[in-house]
Design a protein around this nucleic acid. Structure first.
Lengths: 223, 223
DNA sequence: GTCTATAGAACGATAGAC
DNA sequence: GTCTATCGTTCTATAGAC
């Protein structure tokens, strides 16, 4: 099967963007590595920015589509009743896990791509990501609220923010996990990590010490 | 009081690096904004990389120094007994909070700087950050283990990883918090956020469902 | 649709006067 | 220690032949 010039450019762009980011990746790097001509980028995509946007869009949109599918499916099975937090976060995390999983376990390349896209500071990237996130957040936030009906909305919003932070931080920092914790087992098993991450997040979300701040003097020595 | 050319270059470098990263920031941007000559960068710092390293080093090192000071102080007060998780995470988070706090509340500029430095992919940056983190992690990890003596080491390492992820994710994503959650109160109050983050992390760390993975079918409907 | 060739601008770094 | 001027390189983008 033949791979089109366009697809080869996109594949190489993903690699280099994941490794070096937008500014540090030049079109010459891309075209040289892809074995295509420099001018082909502008022919197929129009500009460097448009190329990078297309590369990002075609990876992220399917993930969010799948997330919403899983959420709808769970709601169908529950007959519309509030879902468990585990089910909600499973719908959020599992499609991401599938996207980064290959037969060899973690696809570090793809994880770097997602990571880099999350922290890219170019304005047009930020606008795109804002859109990606907003669509999916507006679908999930009400479900989280339904599953935690007694929680103060402000308290819940903070916790949801920390939950997303934990998820995104775990992705962004994942390349460092081996250097931080060299003896950590199973770090190539994405499903295992997601299971553990769901546990961590649900514990943080359901923490009973609502808004309570430990007294620093008294809290010093653990009972 | 006069501000030296060197200091003005460093100050502007912080701003621009926080906003655009290393590659997208040019020396001309820096020197133009600082009102100094282009050649002064190479005179004072030697190269673009050396300038950015010096800028980063002088901001991060004091934070880690303060963290270890706070930990030692807490241990002195406890007479060497294991600390509460709250006390440990207070020592980790509070110096960061102080560093980003000005009289106007959150110093978004500094938060962006830290955030950008965490995700910068240049090799010399990564090596430096690895060193910054390792020093401080090797001091704190044993204390966390002493405070959670009954926990399986593998389980604990995963949770500590998620805790750091939540912390770093909260910093990295902080610029987006207002767009994600427009009605969130207190988001300019760094001490308040840190208090809440400590609660979230401690709940995740002490979660009783050790290594237990919810059955996805049964977990679907929240009781 | 793919190529060569190049325009036009911006880059990091440095030489050398003051 | 600060300046001007500039070197040599590299960048995105495009014109135009095939």
């Amino acid at each position: 099967m033949t791979v089109s010039t366009k697809d080869r450019i996109l594949a190489v762009t993903e690699d280099l963007f994941g490794q070096h980011g937008f500014s540090a990746t030049t079109l010459r790097d891309v075209t040289d590595r892809a074995g295509v001509n420099l001018a082909s980028v502008n022919y197929h995509f129009g500009s460097k920015e448009a190329l990078f946007m297309e590369m990002l869009r075609r990876r992220i949109e399917p993930i969010n589509r799948k997330r919403i599918e899983l959420l709808d499916e769970a709601l169908r099975r529950s007959g519309g009743a509030p879902l468990s937090l585990e089910a909600i976060w499973d719908a959020i995390l599992r499609p991401l896990g599938e996207a980064v999983t290959t037969t060899d376990g973690f696809d570090e390349k793809f994880l770097r791509l997602i990571s880099q896209s999350l922290v890219e500071r170019n304005e047009f990237f930020e606008t795109a990501h804002q859109q990606f996130f907003t669509e999916f957040k507006e679908r999930f936030s009400p479900e989280l609220a339904r599953s935690l009906p007694k929680m103060d909305p402000q308290e819940m919003t903070w916790r949801v923010y920390f939950s997303f932070s934990a998820m995104l931080g775990a992705i962004i920092q994942h390349q460092k996990i081996g250097r931080w914790f060299p003896f950590l087992e199973n770090r190539g098993n994405v499903d295992n990590m997601i299971d553990r991450l769901i546990n961590f997040i649900v514990a943080g979300l359901t923490n009973s010490r609502v808004g309570e701040v430990p007294n620093r003097e008294e809290a010093e020595v653990r009972s």
